Simulated scan of single mutants.
Amino acid sequence: MTFTTTRNTGSHHPAQRGFTLVELMIVVAIVGILTAIAYPSYISYMQKTRRSVAAACMVELSQWVERNYTTCLAYNRTGATCATAMTSAALPNFACRNDLAGSYTFSFAAAPTATAYSLQAVPGAAQAGDTTCATLTLDQAGAKGASGTTPVNCWK
């Protein structure tokens, strides 16, 4: 019994698959350009979102202070008998304050008086780049303010 083996001696080789270095460098350049455009937009969007939540939290805190005023007839007093001085420590820890703990610090801009108060939201580390609005303020008359470079649209 004889066995015959045949070998394919033709030059037909399967095509190699893969990317060339030039193709990979083009893809890396495109991803780099898209990242350079998208990342600053993302950061700006996140700052605006946090600012909007902080503004809503300021309104919620203001409503709490006003409800306290209806009980004590003074902004600088709190407690069941209205014998406790109102300070930033007396402000309640609403969920919005906890959610924004790394982004904003909520407090009174100055010690409240019997007839006036001013709340402020001071940007923290996560919000430090928000120079457009910076510190947000809200007082007993409902006057909304911001200490940034362009405070016009900060409360929208």
Rank of each mutant, 00 (worst) to 15 (best):
M1A: 11
T2A: 07
T2F: 01
T5H: 11
R7P: 14
N8F: 04
N8M: 07
H12A: 14
H13Q: 14
A15E: 08
Q16R: 10
R17T: 13
L21H: 01
E23T: 00
E23W: 01
E23H: 02
M25H: 06
M25R: 08
M25G: 09
I26P: 03
I26L: 13
V27P: 03
V27W: 06
A29L: 06
A29T: 04
A29D: 02
I30R: 13
L34G: 13
A38P: 07
S41W: 13
Y42M: 02
Y42H: 06
S44Y: 15
M46Q: 08
Q47W: 15
R51Q: 03
S52F: 15
V53K: 11
A55H: 09
E60S: 11
E60G: 11
L61D: 00
W64R: 14
W64P: 01
E66H: 11
N68Y: 00
T70N: 14
T71S: 12
T71H: 06
T71K: 12
C72P: 01
A74H: 01
A74E: 02
Y75G: 06
T78C: 03
G79V: 02
T81I: 12
C82K: 06
A83E: 11
A83N: 10
T84R: 12
A85H: 13
T87R: 03
S88D: 00
S88Q: 00
A90L: 07
L91S: 00
L91M: 02
N93F: 15
A95S: 10
D99W: 08
D99C: 04
G102L: 13
F106E: 00
S107G: 11
F108S: 00
A109T: 05
A110C: 12
A111D: 05
T115M: 09
A116K: 07
S118E: 05
L119A: 00
Q120W: 08
V122F: 15
P123S: 05
P123Q: 03
G124P: 04
Q127M: 09
T132G: 09
A134Y: 08
L136N: 02
T137C: 04
L138V: 08
D139M: 07
A141R: 05
G142P: 01
S147R: 02
P151K: 00
V152S: 14
N153C: 11
N153M: 07
C154P: 09
W155I: 06
W155D: 04
K156I: 13
